[in-house]
Design a protein around this nucleic acid. Structure first.
Length: 325
DNA sequence: AAGATTACCTGAAGGC
DNA sequence: TGCCTTCAGGTAATCT
């Protein structure tokens, strides 16, 4: 499943392979991936030059342009600048931009690989000056959507409710967004409105490395706990980027190579196996509708109003009014 | 009103 | 063997 590290690797690949190239054609095999319609996307983008790729969380924004300012953008990338592209883009509608937002959701994949052969799950074939780019998505959740610029001509990478990227936000700002939440920390990590990019795999891995139980209410966490979670989430995702991402079921990179971060997973999908740190059997439970994997010894359950003797379970009001002033 | 649940999809895996 | 059910999870929409 593509999370922040996998999407970042896609962004790096698109910048390396495609920036500076013109979208010369488009074969749509399943129109459902394109919004608002296949015709609208084709009409807007064919003939335009990819000038910039930006990422926020799991969202990618592909900016296309014509005109002089393409030259400045393209010049920022060493790989793709070519004379004919510059000649084409010169002098037409200076600085004008169009953009599409790409989200791979669960199973979306991008291939820039001459050896790739499209199958029944290949929904889109883009032609960039003769270089074919394939979009494949087994479950058809992913979308490539035309987006409008704001009044200043600026494109938002992600929809407005999506929070700052988890690798961009600072600890103080993140803590402010997290500390007010009474939901389990696992649910808060997955909430893209708090900070964008963490998915189920890296949420579990971050909580294990921070030694925090997934059910711990976010608001009950002390500063050092929050600091460990924040650092662990960023560290594990940076590490995953360097290792090409995690291949669990469906994610492979743009050349068709599986990421090799999976070997480094300590808890995700390892329930029933021994903890690599303490040997305890790893457990699984459902939090926020998602399976969560953790070590019951390394990540002790949060203190709860549990009767000491199981025979005297009496429901009691929780201490909702814990002052923290 | 925040938190929980469901819809969207398909393939893999397990049960019988 | 083959049919059936369950599970996987990112996000938007819907429910409580």
């Amino acid at each position: 499943m593509p999370e922040l590290p996998e999407v970042e690797n896609v962004a790096l690949a698109l910048r390396e392979c495609l920036v500076g190239r013109r979208l010369t054609g488009m074969e749509v095999r399943f129109p459902g991936v394109l919004e608002p319609s296949a015709e609208a996307v084709e009409e807007a983008l064919v003939g335009w030059v990819l000038v910039k790729v930006r990422r926020q969380g799991k969202y990618l924004l592909l900016e296309f342009g014509e005109g002089d300012r393409c030259r400045e953008d393209i010049a920022g990338y060493s790989g793709g600048m070519r004379e004919d592209v510059l000649a084409h883009s010169a002098g037409i509608e200076r600085g004008y931009r169009r953009a599409v937002c790409l989200h791979l959701r669960m199973t979306g994949q991008i291939f820039v690989d001459p050896a790739y052969r499209p199958d029944q799950h290949t929904h889109l074939i883009l032609d960039f000056d003769g270089l074919p780019v394939y979009y494949r998505d087994i479950r058809k959740f992913g979308r490539l959507a035309l987006v409008e610029a704001d009044a200043d001509g600026v494109f938002a990478v992600a929809p407005p409710h999506v929070g700052p990227d988890m690798l961009e936000i600072g600890f103080a700002a993140w803590r402010e967004r997290v500390a007010a939440r009474r939901a389990p920390i696992k649910a808060v990590l997955l909430d893209q409105g708090v900070a964008a990019g963490i998915g189920n795999i890296y949420a579990d891995e971050a909580l294990f490395r921070a030694r925090v139980h997934p059910l711990t209410p976010a608001a009950s966490l002390a500063d050092p706990d929050l600091r460990r979670i924040f650092n662990a989430a960023r560290a594990v995702m940076r590490l995953a980027i360097r290792h090409g991402g995690t291949t669990y079921l469906n994610f492979v990179d743009f050349r068709g190579q599986p990421g090799n971060f999976r070997r480094k997973l300590r808890v995700y999908q390892r329930d029933g196996e021994p903890c690599r740190d303490c040997g305890e059997t790893l457990a699984r439970l459902v939090v926020a509708g998602r399976s969560s994997h953790f070590c019951p010894r390394c990540q002790p359950a949060p203190r709860r109003r549990k009767a000491r003797r199981p025979t005297t379970t009496r429901p009691r009001a929780s201490r909702a009014s814990r002052d923290r002033s």
